[in-house]
Amino acid sequence: MTGNPNKGTPLVEMRDISIAFGGIKAVDHVTVDLYPGEVVGLLGHNGAGKSTLIKCLSGAYHKDAGEILINGEKVEIDSPRDARKYNIETIYQTLALADNLDAASNLFLGRELVSSSGFLDDTRMEAETRKIMGRLNPNFRKFNVPVSALSGGQRQSVAIARAVYFNAKILIMDEPTAALGPHETQMVAELIQELKAQGLGIFLIEHDIHAVMDLCDRAVVMKNGQRVGCVNVNEVTDDDILGMIIAGKKPPQAY
C-alpha cells in the first residue's frame, strides 16, 4: 500500500512554494501537507531548504510563489504576527529567545498581558509562566533570572512553553533536540506524543534518523530545494529514508 493515509481536508497545505535568494532557488516548487494529530518530518541535508520552507509558514520569510491553505482556505502569511493569528507556533533551532529577559518576558514576548490601565502585568505573566512550566518542566525554578543564565534544556523548555501556552494548532519544531542531553530529549519526545494526542499537527525538522522513525508518521525529504518524495514512516526502513536524503533515490512506497 502506498499513498497518503490521511483523508479529508488537511490542516495545512503548502502548494508549489518557491523562494529564491539572489538567484539561488532555496525552495523550488515544493508541496507539503499536514493533518491534525500527525507528525510530519522534514528531512534533508543542511541547505536542502527545510528551514526556509518552514519559515514561509511561520511568517519569517516571504514566499515568491505558491499558496498556503489552512483548513482548506487560502491565507496570506506576511509576518510572524499573521502566523500566530492562524495558531501557528514555531520553535526555532536558535530558540529565538531574548537572552537578557527572564522566562516570563520571553514566553509572552509580543503578546504581553496588560492590566486594565494598559501597563504590563508582570506578576500575572510570571504566575502563568509558573503554571505552564509546572506542567512541562516541574524542576524549573529560575523565574527571575535572564534566560542567558539557564541551561540548554531549560532554555528549550521556555521556547516550548511559549508555543504550547498559546494553544497552537500547528506546531513547527526546527531540530528541537539538537542541543539537548538524553534525558531532555526524552522529555521532548514525550511532549510531542502528548501534543499529537491532543490533535495538533506538527512539522518536525530533524536530522536524527532514529528520532524520525520514532516520532513521525510521515516524512518528506528535500534535496537542493526540491521535494524528493514523501513516505509513510511505518512502510519504510531507515535505509530507505537515508537513500532519499543522500542520493535523492525514491523508494517504491514514496509518493
Binding site: P80, A96, L97, A98, L101, L109, E112, F119, L120
Partner: peptide, 28 residues
C-alpha cells in the same frame, strides 16, 4: 522608567537589544 519597565514599548526595546532576530520573530 515607567516606559522602560511597565510598558510593551520598553519591553520591546530590551528584547531588540537582547536578540533583534528573536524580537522580529516574535512579531515586533
Amino acid at each position: 522608567t515607567v516606559l522602560m519597565t511597565r510598558t510593551r514599548f520598553g519591553r520591546y526595546v530590551f528584547a531588540i537589544g537582547g536578540n533583534p532576530e528573536a524580537a522580529s520573530l516574535a512579531g515586533i
